[in-house]
């Protein structure tokens, strides 16, 4: 991620900072970070703790200056949102390099404070998307609108119900059911791994909120007609018909054809 994000300290300065940012980046890149929280310049003690956390846990792969090594990406300019997403979902620090880092809640090695410190440190190295405000990551979006946006922008990879889907060569779009609203937002904003970026001009913060509302609804709404079979479509339905369905019927047929005791 080499995009630049507007940085600001106060919500009231949002327009000004945006204009400034546009000028600075030559009108090429603009990312409307919705939040005032997690600004790149935190307190110096937080930055210090963040740096020591970084050196201890991340520098082996990403380099002491976070500028990347061989296949490992540079973290300069990825922003606090990317760090928060990768670390809070347990993807980083990467324990076992494979095709793609998997979401792993048992691999979350830091407290939320530590993650925040780490994110601030990385954000201080180069401007990037900030951690989103809870205003857009909590519930309350338009579920129907979110569903439509999801089907246009997301369902082709993540499946109609966010159950996940296959990408090329072993990569995959993960299941979204247990992903927090904040992480969803951060993923759309930063485009982790194979996922493309959905910046705020593509999906506005309100759009993202709607998408999150839709996914949360999929997770929380009761099933309309019994077990969902994982919401994976006709494959699991076919498997059910071929195993349990016809199995029960054949069982009945065997009982029927056998002589009574």
């Amino acid at each position: 991620m080499s995009s630049l994000a507007a940085q600001r300290r106060h919500p009231a300065s949002i327009v000004l900072v945006l204009l400034l940012g546009l000028v600075i980046t030559g009108g090429l890149y603009a990312l409307l970070a919705p939040s005032s929280a997690g600004a790149a310049v935190g307190s110096s003690s937080d930055l210090k703790s963040g740096k020591s956390l970084f050196l201890a846990n991340c520098a082996t792969c990403h380099g002491v200056n976070a500028d990347g090594r061989e296949n490992n990406p540079s973290l300069v300019g990825v922003g606090a949102a990317a760090v928060d997403f990768q670390v809070s979902s347990g993807r980083m620090p990467l324990s076992n390099p494979s095709v793609q880092a998997a979401r792993n809640s048992s691999n979350v090695q830091f407290t939320s404070t530590q993650i925040k410190q780490l994110a601030e440190y990385v954000a201080s190295l180069g401007a990037g998307p900030a951690i989103p405000s809870s205003k857009y990551t909590s519930l309350g979006g338009n579920i129907a609108k979110g569903g439509e946006l999801f089907r246009v922008n997301c369902a082709m990879c993540h499946n109609f119900a966010g159950s996940g889907g296959a990408l090329t060569r072993g990569k995959y779009a993960p299941n979204l059911m247990d992903v927090s609203g904040k992480q969803m937002y951060e993923a759309m904003l930063t485009g982790p791994q194979s996922m493309p970026v959905f910046n705020d001009t593509n999906l506005s913060p309100q759009d993202k909120k709607d998408v999150i509302a839709y996914l949360k609804n999929v997770k929380n709404e009761p099933s309309q007609g019994g077990h969902t079979l994982g919401n994976l479509g006709p494959v699991t339905e076919g498997m059910f018909a071929w195993t349990i369905g016809i199995g029960l019927l054949i069982g009945a047929a065997v009982w029927l054809g056998r002589k009574a005791a």
Binding site: L31, V152, G191, V197
Partner: peptide, 21 residues
């Protein structure tokens, strides 16, 4: 135009790594 919002797109909107439908 963006699908489904039907709004026009500026070149600057299309940041690196983005995909627009």
């Amino acid at each position: 135009m963006r699908d489904p919002e039907n709004t026009p797109i500026r070149l600057s909107d299309v940041t690196l790594g983005s995909v627009f439908h």
